[in-house]
């Protein structure tokens, strides 16, 4: 089977999977656009400052 003018599946798979991986990144970015908004507060790092002292 020839895909995009390339006969070796080892090569056209790499070509298509590269594009698919970037498409996955775009979809992931949009699906999670507003997720994960928890932020570290100043009190969250008091313990490490005390430990260092």
């Amino acid at each position: 089977m020839t895909v995009l003018g390339i006969a070796d599946p080892g090569v056209w798979l790499a070509y298509l999977l590269s594009i698919l991986s970037a498409v996955f990144c775009i979809v992931y970015g949009f699906v999670n656009w507003n997720k994960g908004d928890e932020r570290i507060q100043p009190e969250d790092i008091k313990w490490v400052k005390a430990e260092i002292k």
Binding site: S18, I19, S21, A22, F24, C25, I26, V27, Y28, G29, F30, N32, W33, N34, K35, G36, D37, E38, R39
Partner: peptide, 23 residues
């Protein structure tokens, strides 16, 4: 970055960037 939200948003941009430059 401030939170995981910024990293989520960066994933799409980074993926397209690497694909286009390296590819």
């Amino acid at each position: 970055v401030k939170s995981a939200k910024e990293l989520n948003r960066a994933v799409g941009m980074g993926g397209v960037f690497f694909l286009c430059i390296i590819g």
